[in-house]
Amino acid sequence: MGLCKDTAMILSTRTFGESDKIVRFFSLNEGRLTGIAKGGKKSQKRFTNTLEPFNCVRIEFFEKATASMVRIENADIEESNSGLEVDLKKVCIASFFSEFVDRMTREKERNEALFETLRTVVLQTKRVELNYSDILYYELQMLDHLGYLPNFVRCVHCGIELAEGERLGFSKEKGGIVCLACSRFIPHRRYPQGFIPQLASYSPDKGRTTEAFERMGRDILEDFVSFHLDVRLKSYRLLKKVAG
């Protein structure tokens, strides 16, 4: 306890009272935290533009065992969000991943890999135009870091490893693929041959995918996340509308 110094991604902020700000941030060493920045709305010296969503900052905060919120003392920008605001789609992507991390993590649960993925996705969103396949790639990466990655290799019922050509049925309830034999009594959705292996192994450097791939990938993850994690993200509706 006491004064902590850490690197953090700002997830969201809201005004509290006349001049304070409540800030939710995901730090490298402490995980997700909520803090109060006294004078955060008005102070021209300590915070000005540092406590803005999607900024990566070096943050100093006081933590008390008895308090539910930390007290943010200082923040300096390491990487600013500047460059996202020029395109609504970019802001929607950054918002989606920030909200994803915010809703899917517990307070004070350290996850270094998740932090790095969030930092990378915000940086990439600023630099290049991400397509929906890239969004799916980063979403799968985050699910993996959180321990929720769907099983794309073995049948989720009998456990048998399936060849790539046999990976056709996906059960959102069971959280992974099902073999032909198990698919007779397990509710599932059938996808075209090659789609599931392509989704599982996709990375942005593999180039552009088809619209059908993006649509199916979106459906599969949307169903899986909403069924298992019961999370409705406010930014997702707008992202879908903007990203097409």
Partner: peptide, 10 residues
């Protein structure tokens, strides 16, 4: 203002 984090679009 537009704020996707709050679900506020144009």
């Amino acid at each position: 203002v537009i704020n996707p984090l709050e679900g506020i679009g144009p």
